[in-house]
């Protein structure tokens, strides 16, 4: 199935996962391209986005699978003219790999501290993420479960980024099980509330397969 790689930045990060699909369904129509529709009572245009992105999270690497009614040539430019501010198609992938081969995700987190970032803050956070375990409660349909998030955190680099900010680069499991990078911040709030940042900005950077190759 054809696939496209897009980024979601600026104010478009506030558009939810479902709304993003609707945005694309309309953008295809505006670009004069007819998506394949589902059968049934109320036919719907078929698009699917891998790994739903939380509201407020930026991304450089969203994947959307689509199918056109007829063989029209699709370029990023055609769709970009029809997309709202902040959503940009970077690449068209004729034949995407199976989504289940997508296993890892690199993300960056910027934590802002109005009071300033100190070396001790960095050390304390580093210790938090390199402890024995980091157990978070997770709400699911079955009720509350406890999960240790550290096994899903494959790599974490931390550095100061200016007076008031701290940047983390993380590599996390993307599927079965997956780790939402936001949980790394939730862990601070739970286990070290005195280290909680005043603002957080999260961005998905790249997708990988099990061998560490870029996934498309």
């Amino acid at each position: 199935m054809p696939r496209l790689l897009f980024e979601k930045t600026g104010d478009s990060v506030w558009i939810s996962h479902l709304d993003t699909m609707r945005v694309f369904q309309r953008a295809f129509r505006r670009a004069g391209l007819m998506l394949k529709h589902s059968q049934g009572f109320t036919p719907r245009a078929i698009v699917s986005i891998a790994l739903p992105l939380s509201v407020g999270v930026h991304s450089r690497c969203e994947l959307l699978d689509y199918e056109l009614e007829n063989d029209a040539a699709l370029t990023p430019e055609i769709l970009n003219d029809a997309l709202p501010v902040g959503i940009r198609v970077r690449e068209i992938i004729e034949n995407g790999r199976k989504i289940k081969e997508l296993t890892h995700l690199r993300a960056s987190l910027e934590l802002t501290y109005d009071r300033g970032v100190t070396d001790s803050l960095l050390q304390e956070l580093d210790a938090l993420y390199h402890g024995e375990s980091l157990i978070l409660k997770k709400h699911s349909r079955k009720g509350e479960t406890e999960t240790d998030i550290l096994p899903m955190l494959c790599d974490l680099q931390m550095e100061k980024a200016g007076e008031n900010a701290l940047r983390m680069q993380v590599l996390v499991c993307a599927q079965n099980p997956s780790l939402n990078p936001q949980l790394l911040v939730n862990a601070i709030e739970l286990y070290a509330p005195h280290l909680a940042p005043d603002a957080v900005s999260i961005r998905r950077e790249e997708l990988f397969d099990a061998e560490g190759n870029v996934f498309r």
Binding site: D11, W14, S16, R26, V55, G56, P84, V85
Partner: peptide
Amino acid sequence: EKLQRILPKVQKPARYVGGEY
């Protein structure tokens, strides 16, 4: 900057930022 800090806390933030097609 102030707005960016508010938006994660409210329901349906997309309605407060404009930028639509």
